[in-house]
Design a binder for these strands. Structure first.
Lengths: 159, 159
DNA sequence: CCTATTTCGACAACCTTGTTGTCTATGACA
DNA sequence: TGTCATAGACAACAAGGTTGTCGAAATAGG
């Protein structure tokens, strides 16, 4: 019976990790071994309009240098491509590749499946109400993934 | 209206960060500037019986070396003390100091206050049900704080 | 009783992800 | 045109974690 504030925090963290770890593991099982949540988030942001390193950094609440490092990894693995912006030669326009979209799509379906599992465990309306309440409490915060490691970390759990 | 699995994950993460960041900031405001959630968790584990580095590592699901580093920090700041075990000269027995307990106590009350705030926002029974459902879904996982940075990270937000 | 294995704690080397600071090129604007 | 802001690259460094190795101490077995 968790009723202390600290337990509540741990519960939330546990919930996230439980989903994220399962998703990462499943993604690896499907052949995308080096994809971490942080890569997914970055690609989403790029798709959503953050088409250069500085902007990506702002959206992810990290420095542009950190964003550039992430981009370098994504580019190296073929998930994003870059070319120079014809309108502003300082910029390198980012684009998610077909392979990148494939990862995004798979990730999405994996998360949806996990959510379905939860729905079956506690009931559809209960989960919906949990989400609604949480959304109320959390508000619209700008994700904040300034996590050295963490979301980008490898799993130790079950393959 | 978040209804995708990925949004649910983000919501949980956001909830945790929201609590953890607020607690860290408040702890800093009260004079404990260098305390991070990971330190709190470690002290709790020590109190709960993990009285040596190897054991602490096991409880926190990190290597004993990582645990030793955390202990070194806690010791340096006076939150834990060490002496040699009379029964096993390999061990250094860990003890949370009075100052450490003070931090623990303050942290607890801060988290409880945050939980009270949430309770006022969505209602007591709603929060209780949220916790119960979450506990069902997450189960009794062994915390897992193997987060390079993250819980130990500094805040960028409001002081 | 002596040896073999295990465990503890320490040290070193290294990885990952983040940060700041600096620099050059380019664009925006008065 | 001259000044200022911004993009991206590079370097140096911090925090936290990992593995590998090693000596010392405990424990198990013959």
């Amino acid at each position: 019976m968790p009723r202390s504030g600290a337990d509540l925090a741990l519960l939330l963290l546990g919930g996230f990790r439980s989903l994220a770890d399962a998703a990462t593991a499943e993604l690896a099982r499907r052949g995308y071994e080096d994809v971490r949540p942080v890569h997914d988030f970055a690609m989403r942001a790029i798709t959503a309009g953050a088409d250069n390193a500085s902007e990506l950094g702002r959206r992810l609440s990290v420095s542009k240098q950190a964003a550039a490092k992430t981009i370098a990894v994504l580019q190296e693995r073929g998930y994003v491509a870059r070319d120079t912006d014809p309108l502003d030669a300082r910029r390198k326009r980012l684009q998610v590749t077909a392979l990148g979209f494939e990862v995004l799509r798979q990730g999405e379906s994996i998360f949806d499946e996990l959510r379905d599992q939860w729905e079956r465990q506690i009931g559809s309306s209960e989960l919906a109400s949990l989400e609604t309440h949480l959304a109320t409490l959390v508000g619209a915060l700008p994700v904040r993934l300034d996590a050295p490691g963490w979301t980008a970390h490898d799993l130790g759990g079950p393959a």
